[in-house]
Design a protein around this nucleic acid. Structure first.
Lengths: 351, 351
DNA sequence: ACGGAATGCGAGAACGGTCTCGCAATTCTC
DNA sequence: GAGAATTGCGAGACCGTTCTCGCATTCCGT
């Protein structure tokens, strides 16, 4: 069994009867070298199936053309898979590769992930931070000066470029839309990482994006002068379902339920369906984040859609810019928008 | 602005007043070295925040502890995101990193992706091949002897370890279940990559997993002695919807529709919903691949569930085994199973 | 007290590239 | 036709590690 090692530049040099330097010149096309030599070396290299060792190139250059992506994982959440795909694709366009690690919403795991990326000499990192406040592994010193772009959420420091979506505005807009449709008793189901079970008193929310959604919802409730019931739930199907039960059984049962993400929406769908209620008629629903299935259901679910692909793409563009030149940190906020389908019933106002 | 380069082993050696070799020994814990020196070097290294350059280590060792993953992308397809996640996680357990590229079902893109991986010196590759027959970029020579594990589909050669699911058996089982439930007019909606529009005559199917599903369905139809209508569709929402219309409008309208993947299921849901039909009552549905939303809907969708996480995990385990020792190629087939929910109506047999 | 074994550590090569420098050969200039 | 300029290419340093080899020094036994 031939262990078929790939050809190195030395092999090419030997086969072509020239020095390593000449091979390098011929293939990269720089420096003083005759056309004949270039052609000769190139054909020899091709014949040998030579391909430069990216590791060696990176070591010499001090650049790897690789960016690290640390997401909290949970691909069930439609957001992160779409973001991941758009990041990989945009990176490819710009000539970068992507190394992916999951933090599972755990700061300790995130820390290790970042260290792994750094020891792999990534040129920069895109990070969905597990915590707003815990970022001692993200000091300039520990990062070795490598740029970082934060997406989806914000940190309590403004050291990095941040790409987020304007969830507060969109959340308020959604509530006002419900108000215009005649809904006055509103229910809210908010997924909060880190809590156990569910509760109706607002817990500490460790993630700015969720906080924004809550703020926007509250603002909407205030503006519309509506009544509201809130449940904050662990991000787990079974528990979220109990939370929905509680929402539906509360004294002033809401005619519409707003959910902070797709997983919560699924819980609503399940419980509501089991009770024999029809979406868009007996009960209304609005959820954060669009997905193919939310669009394909009948009636389609009215959602607050975030420009996820754009977010990922912009994050890469910004990061690469920071890698190649020195840029100042900026805060980029992309607009989220209400996509109206059929899941919100028009209530006849009984004034 | 301090460009804060990360400390190298030379910095540590200088700071500790010893040679590079000694630092290496102290940190890796091998060779003849005094306990005092070890402690001293370690504390100095920690103080400097030293972390070995993985590139240099890899170059020296000839191993990168990285595996390449080439998937056809399409994260909307629930299969690939779950597979990707399980692969990353299992790789992490075994001390490997994962480099991801998408082929978009295009052999040319797949070829480039594989070459990129190889030039990045991955230790092995996990591949979802875009084509059964076109694999000239996967010769032992081009691969430089690096092992490859094929998942989800098979090639027409048996050079590589393959991890797939037993879709034929499961497809047949699903059809028989429908027969037992009283269905005799069966509809099939098959997504075929590479075709345009939709057709009712069977086109060439470039992917073994889809072929298996078709074979299994056909076997079931034969065994159950049922009538069947088939539509083969491009994998695009709008077109799939037209295909569903055609299925429902065919002379012998089916009472149940089988779909070859989740995207097709969504098309069925949409059209059926728009026609005011109720799933599990007016029309029945069975789909390949489980998903959170298929489970959360009411009624839940009866699906043929494939052990995707297990598949990914096994693929990594096999690949790492091949990387570390020399193993023979094997064909691993994991069982897919029918998950019965409420989307198949029990028909009273009118004999 | 002296030879041999054990111990601790440094020098230097190697991995596979890139790139600067300098040398020889050719061409140009008047 | 002699000196200068240009051209083409090789030698060797370097990136950050690991690891083999060999050299001092200490330790032990007799």
């Amino acid at each position: 069994m031939a262990t078929n090692k790939n050809a190195t530049i030395n092999d090419v040099a030997a086969a072509a009867g020239v020095s390593r330097a000449t091979v390098s010149r011929a293939l990269a096309g720089y420096g003083r070298i005759s056309k004949q030599t270039v052609d000769h070396v190139r054909s020899v290299a091709e014949g040998l199936g030579y391909r430069p060792n990216a590791l060696a190139v990176a070591m010499r250059a001090g650049k790897t053309k690789t960016i690290g992506l640390v997401v909290i994982s949970d691909f069930t959440n439609a957001f992160f898979d779409r973001a991941t795909k758009s990041i990989i694709d945009r990176a490819k366009e710009l000539g970068f590769r992507v190394l992916i690690q999951h933090s599972d919403e755990d700061v300790a795991v995130e820390r290790v992930a970042v260290e792994t990326m750094l020891s792999n000499q990534v040129d920069g990192i895109i990070l969905v931070p597990a915590s707003t406040t815990k970022h001692s592994h993200l000091t300039p010193k520990k990062l070795g000066g490598k740029p970082v772009v934060i997406i989806d959420r914000m940190l309590d420091i403004q050291r990095f470029t941040t790409v987020t979506t304007g969830d507060e505005v969109a959340a308020k807009e959604a509530v006002l839309y419900a108000g215009e449709s005649g809904h006055t008793n509103l229910g809210f189901l908010i997924a909060v990482p880190g809590i156990r079970g569910f509760t109706s008193t607002q817990p500490e929310i460790p993630i700015t994006s969720v906080q924004e959604r809550v703020d926007g919802f509250e603002l909407g409730v205030k503006t519309a002068k509506a009544k509201s019931v809130w449940v904050y739930s662990e991000d787990k199907q079974a528990i979220a379902e109990s939370a929905v039960e509680k929402l539906l059984d509360s004294p002033k049962a809401p005619t519409i339920i707003f959910t902070s993400n797709n997983d919560m929406l699924l819980a609503v769908l399940k419980v509501v369906g089991e009770r024999g209620l029809t979406i868009g008629k007996d009960i209304s629903v609005v959820s954060f984040d669009d997905s193919p299935w939310a669009a394909a259901m009948v009636p389609g679910i009215t959602v607050i859609s975030r420009p996820v692909e754009e977010l990922g793409s912009i994050a890469v563009t910004e990061l690469v810019e920071a890698i190649e030149g020195n840029t100042k940190p900026k805060e980029i906020v992309l607009p989220a928008s209400l996509v109206i389908r059929g899941s919100v019933a028009k209530l006849t106002k009984s004034k």
